[in-house]
Amino acid sequence: MEPEEGTFLPKVDINVARWDQSTYIGRAKYYFSTTNPFNLFIPSSDLEKAKILLDKYKLGKPLTGVTIDDIYKAKEQVDSAFHPDTGEKMILIGRMSAQVPMNMLITGCMMTFYRSTSAVIFWQWINQSFNAIVNYTNRSGTSPIPNEQLGKSYIMATGGAVFTALSLNKVLHNAPSIIGRLVPFIAVAAANCINIPLMRIKELKEGVPVYDENNQLVGKSKIAACKGITAVVFSRVVMCAPGMVLTPIIVNWLDKRGLFKRYPKVNLPIQLGVCGICLAFATPMCCALFPQKSAISVINIEPELQVHCFNFF
């Protein structure tokens, strides 16, 4: 039942996710909402209306014909398009909702044209360029990553991915085709292992804030930073795995049965389709593997901080 005109809605904290982020299911629901590709098709006018509605709700103004569900829907739309710190509208391909379609296209092409040296270089470069755009678009508004660091990370991740892919292609030249089809996954995994630590090198050098059970700041821990960044690298690699491992297995099976010899034009569409299906589930489910706020045992951090029990961000 909708409220009457001018009704004051119940106050809820819309600065936090709608679902319980201490559980995997709650985090998965949040990321399914955040990475929903259909958010890309929301007109700018509707996004502006959602932002205005959300601002009115935050100010406690009476609203006409609006329910709490409408408020949460507006929040999902605003979160999908506007930067959480600056409030600026993010570029389209840098948004989280662009992750699935963009990665579907890039990954599908990487695995389709994996034999050609020029294609390997081109698509690994495109992949790391896209990652750089995402990193820049979603950079912190309060502690932004310097452009110099973004550039260094981009160059080294691209170089690492291209070197890994070309080296493995040369070494595995006579290996079974299924092995060759897995080279793009190994190259992307290697690039993630380079890119993410470089992007967060400041945290590794200075540590991340840690808090005790009363949410009081204790200090900064490099060990906690290392643990957190390792978890991010792991989740990113696992996120790539379903599409970049399952797709080659399916495609190799179809290739052995002569499908692509009879219908060569279906090769790329099939790879894109399988990748898209895998990514639609793997992206939100792997983002949800670890909570943004995690606990760490006292005995596993620096001695000077071990006198406290805490959580770290």
Rank of each mutant, 00 (worst) to 15 (best):
W253D: 05
K261N: 14
P43E: 02
Y114S: 13
N169P: 09
L217I: 03
P146S: 08
S22V: 13
P303H: 02
Q306Y: 07
F310I: 15
K29C: 09
D46P: 15
P242S: 07
N138G: 06
G159W: 05
N215Y: 11
K293C: 13
V162Q: 01
G273S: 11
S118W: 14
V162N: 10
Q99W: 11
T247N: 05
L63A: 00
K227W: 04
V12R: 11
D55G: 15
P303R: 09
I201A: 14
C309Q: 12
L168E: 09
L204Q: 08
I299D: 11
Y24F: 13
D69P: 10
Q306C: 12
N311K: 05
I121V: 07
G228H: 00
L47H: 13
A98D: 00
C275K: 04
N131I: 02
N174W: 15
Y211M: 12
M156A: 11
A231F: 01
D255H: 05
S33D: 03
S116T: 01
Q306A: 04
N127L: 04
D70M: 09
E88Y: 14
R257D: 00
G94C: 02
S44R: 15
I14R: 05
L259C: 01
V188W: 04
G94N: 03
V78L: 06
L268T: 03
K51A: 14
C109R: 09
M96Y: 14
G87W: 08
I133L: 06
G60T: 02
E4P: 09
F312Y: 11
R139C: 01
K11L: 08
L53Q: 05
F32K: 04
L150W: 03
F163R: 14
S294Y: 12
D85M: 11
P43A: 07
E5P: 12
K265Q: 12
P101Q: 13
P144K: 08
A98Q: 03
S22W: 04
V210P: 03
E76P: 12
E302Q: 00
C275G: 05
A241M: 06
A81D: 03
P84Q: 03
I178M: 12
A187T: 05
A28S: 08
L259V: 04
L53V: 10
S153Y: 11
I93G: 06
L272M: 07
P284V: 06
P144Q: 10
R236V: 06
I301M: 10
M96N: 08
I196V: 02
K293W: 10
F32A: 02
E76A: 13
A231N: 03
R262N: 11
K220C: 13
N267C: 11
A282H: 03
T7N: 09
I229Q: 00
M110A: 03
F113M: 11
K75G: 03
V307G: 15
G207L: 08
A295M: 08
L168R: 05
I91A: 10
E213M: 15
N174M: 13
K293Y: 14
L254N: 01
I145N: 13
I179V: 12
E2Y: 13
A288S: 00
M104K: 07
I179Y: 05
V120P: 00
R115Q: 15
K29R: 15
P197M: 04
P269W: 07
A28R: 10
F163L: 14
T137V: 04
Y31Q: 00
A231D: 01
E304R: 06
F122H: 08
V298T: 15
V233S: 00
I299S: 15
E48H: 12
